[in-house]
Simulated scan of single mutants.
Amino acid sequence: MPDIDLGLASDWQDGDWHGRVKLVQNRTYPTSPKKDVAVTSPNSIEIEINTDNSTSGEAKHVFFTAHVGSTKKVIAVLDWQGNLRIAGKLTTDQTNLGY
Rank of each mutant, 00 (worst) to 15 (best):
I49P: 07
K72C: 05
N83V: 04
I49Q: 05
S54E: 00
L97R: 15
I86P: 15
I47Q: 04
T28S: 05
A59T: 05
L84F: 01
D79R: 06
T40I: 02
G15M: 11
V68Q: 14
W12A: 02
H18T: 01
P30R: 08
T40D: 00
W12V: 02
A76C: 06
Q13L: 13
T28C: 07
L8G: 10
T71E: 15
H61R: 09
F64G: 04
V39T: 02
I45W: 03
V24R: 14
D16W: 08
T65F: 06
N83P: 14
K34D: 02
T28N: 03
Q81R: 14
W17S: 10
G88E: 01
I49K: 10
N96A: 04
E46K: 11
I75F: 10
M1L: 10
V62T: 02
G57T: 00
F64C: 00
R20N: 07
T65K: 13
N26E: 07
G15K: 14
F64N: 08
Q25S: 12
I49N: 01
P2Y: 02
A9Q: 10
I86C: 09
D79F: 01
L6R: 12
S44Y: 13
D16G: 09
K34V: 09
T28P: 14
L84Y: 01
S56L: 11
K73V: 05
D79E: 03
G82N: 12
V21D: 09
F64H: 11
I4W: 11
L8I: 09
S32V: 05
T55G: 01
A87E: 05
D11Y: 13
T51A: 07
V24H: 08
I86L: 13
V37Y: 10
A87W: 13
K73Q: 12
L97W: 14
A66S: 07
L23S: 11
T92K: 12
F63D: 04
P33E: 07
V74G: 06
N83G: 00
I75C: 03
S56H: 12
E48N: 06
N96C: 09
A38W: 05
V39S: 06
Q13E: 14
N50I: 03
K34W: 15
D5P: 11
L84R: 00
T55C: 03
